[in-house]
């Protein structure tokens, strides 16, 4: 019989495999620090250069003609984000249904849709932008197509999870009276998953605005294109204006979507 006065040990003994894995991970981290982390000397040298760059950026360019150009570029950026997200969300709904476990009408073929969503999600948006710029040319259309793919990758996964998590009891009740899979989707799954779907859509929109800002760096339209030109031509005052506008817009976007999310809850 176990001695009642014996306390359990404070730390659970590690298995040899866990111990070896922990040591390996620690070693990898230390080596990585040595190879890619900034050294104190680099930080000391970089600091003054950064200060010099910031000084050249100030004051931001507030000329009316330049601000007007930035305004229209920002509108284009918004258009890319909105249209790309709208198309992406519409396409994501059937894709999510087809890939969702338990409710997909596609049977085992659902893995094909799941893999497609994974592919869209794992390839970075700048890579998609390069592909679309190469295929449809420079400009906003390439940016919109990039946002569509990026949104399908994001919403496709989270929509599918929301559908899988929907309350099963109403679904069973509707199946029992002969409702088809599509009717169960519309009648029971989507209404139950709706708050989650709206939340995901708002996150996608926020993400799209941020992405569409940088897509211009590779020629896919929007304000990023203006930013690239400013840096290429050493027009740092123009660059600081654009950065401030981007910061303001992203901040406003986060505020608006946060408020909408709170209302949906």
């Amino acid at each position: 019989m176990r001695d009642a006065t014996l306390l359990p040990t404070r730390i659970t003994r590690l298995s040899p495999v866990t111990f070896a894995l922990l040591v390996g991970a620690g070693a990898l981290l230390i080596v990585s620090f040595q190879q890619v982390a900034p050294s104190p000397a680099q930080l000391a040298q970089g600091g003054p250069r950064m200060a010099e760059l910031v000084a050249r950026m100030l004051p931001p360019n507030l000329e009316a003609s330049f601000l007007q150009r930035v305004f229209w570029r920002m509108i284009e950026t918004f258009q890319i984000a909105m249209v790309g997200t709208a198309i992406g969300v519409i396409v994501s709904l059937p894709v999510a249904w087809l890939s969702a476990k338990r409710i997909s009408p596609a049977g085992l073929s659902r893995h094909v849709f799941k893999m497609m969503v994974s592919l869209f999600r794992t390839v970075p948006d700048l890579v998609w932008a390069l592909i679309f710029v190469a295929s449809v040319g420079l400009g906003a259309v390439a940016g919109t197509m990039t946002i569509v793919v990026d949104t399908i990758g994001f919403c496709g996964r989270f929509f599918a999870e929301a559908m899988e998590d929907a309350d099963r009891k109403p679904q069973e009740a509707l199946f029992a009276i002969g409702a088809s899979r599509f009717q169960v989707l519309c009648g029971a799954v989507l209404p139950d998953a709706m708050p989650s779907l709206i939340n995901t859509t708002l996150f996608a929109l926020e993400k799209s605005v941020r992405s569409s800002v940088v897509l211009g760096l590779v020629g896919a339209g929007g304000i990023g294109q203006e930013l690239k030109v400013a840096f290429d031509l050493f027009q740092y005052k123009n660059a600081s204006t654009i950065i401030l506008v981007i910061f303001g817009i992203v901040l406003v976007m986060e505020f608006v979507t946060d408020r909408l999310r709170t209302r949906v809850q």
Partner: peptide, 14 residues
């Protein structure tokens, strides 16, 4: 037929 289960199975948000 009509079916009623132990749990009502209503769609909560509708």
């Amino acid at each position: 037929i009509g079916v009623v289960f132990q749990h009502h199975g209503l769609v909560a948000r509708q």
